[in-house]
Simulated assay, not measured.
Amino acid sequence: MHNAKAVGLLGYVLLLVGIPFVAVWLALAASAHPEAGWVGAASITTLLVGIACLIVSRRMLTSGRHIDERAEEDPIQPEVTAEEAAEYELHYHGRDTRRDRR
């Protein structure tokens, strides 16, 4: 998990570097500077690698488990026991689930 977070952090840093790099490229291109092509290629490459790092990081973080599993993502909410679930169903829905299990 730490590697995935490091890759994501690298992606954000590359995006933060790439955006001003694009502004420099546009300024160089507006003044017809001969190096504008190389700066443009470097800025686009930086942005693409940054986006790729963010995508890879997200895939690494979510590949090992289902995203809908709230028990892993919410440590504040305790897990519900079977008795608590049956009491909830009886109180709020009027269904006695304890009787259905027998």
Rank of each mutant, 00 (worst) to 15 (best):
L61I: 15
W25Y: 11
G11A: 04
E83W: 01
S57W: 01
G18K: 00
I19Q: 12
R59E: 13
G50M: 00
M1L: 06
R99W: 09
D100V: 09
T81H: 01
Y12Q: 08
M60A: 15
A4L: 02
D74G: 05
A36S: 14
L10I: 06
K5Y: 06
R99A: 13
E83N: 00
R101K: 09
H91P: 04
T97M: 15
I76F: 10
Q77S: 11
R101S: 08
A85K: 11
C53K: 00
G94H: 05
E72T: 06
A23W: 03
A36H: 11
E87L: 08
G94R: 04
V56T: 14
L54W: 02
G64P: 03
W38G: 12
R58L: 15
A52K: 05
W38R: 10
L10W: 04
I55V: 15
M60F: 05
I55C: 05
L90R: 14
P20M: 09
A36Q: 10
M60P: 00
E89K: 01
G37Q: 02
T45K: 07
R70H: 11
G40C: 05
R95Y: 09
R65P: 07
G64H: 10
R95T: 15
S43K: 00
S43Q: 01
I67V: 15
V56L: 15
M60Y: 01
L47A: 02
H2M: 08
N3I: 08
I51M: 15
R102P: 04
A29Y: 07
L26A: 14
V49Y: 06
G40T: 00
V49T: 11
R102F: 05
V13I: 12
A4D: 03
R102C: 06
A32V: 08
E35Q: 08
T97I: 14
E72M: 13
R99I: 13
A27S: 10
L9T: 09
I55T: 13
A4I: 06
R58S: 09
A42N: 05
P75Q: 07
V80W: 05
A86G: 06
P78C: 00
